[in-house]
Amino acid sequence: MVMWSKESRYTMLVKAYSADLFRFAMWLCRDRETAEDLVQETFTRAWRSLGDLRDEKAAKAWLFTTLRREHARLYERKRLEMADVPTENLAAPASDSYDTRTEAQVLRRALAELHEDYREPLLLQVLGGYSCAEIGEQLGLSPNAVMTRLFRARKKLLAVLGEDELTKVEEAHS
């Protein structure tokens, strides 16, 4: 079995998760500088707790949970006026790789306007790749409550894209 040094394990965690954590942070706070601060703070805490993070899956969950808590702490401290930040700020400046299609822009705006009770589980599912049960553990909700929030989140977003035909099918059944 390969025994990694603390520095090597830390480097691997940074390389594996910093980009996804940055995206998660961006959708939580909608400010690039604040998002980077949140990621930096999360990894500073990770360094201190690295001895306890032996399992990689547990490390990933720990990083996402820590970032959420850091964001909540920051929000409490500064009461950021996040709702006023234009959605366009979510785009990387002058990035050719960023998707600027109209549909993506519409979807991005709709995501930004989604209530955080709906947006947060959706971010954890799409960016973090977590199951409903795992999201429930992170947010302190039952798996059923998570499913309800995810269902409603998608329904709202589909409606914005004019694809509510999908949800109408569901309504026809109910």
């Binding site: 980077e36 785009a91 549909e103 995501l111 894209l161």
Partner: peptide, 26 residues
């Protein structure tokens, strides 16, 4: 298919040197 659009919309590009900055700070 909608899920893929959603993932694309969420794919904010991180700063190019984010990893380096985190490692340097540590």
């Amino acid at each position: 298919a909608f899920q893929r659009k959603l993932a694309e919309a969420m794919a904010v590009e991180p700063p190019a040197d984010l990893e380096e900055r985190i490692l340097l700070r540590q």
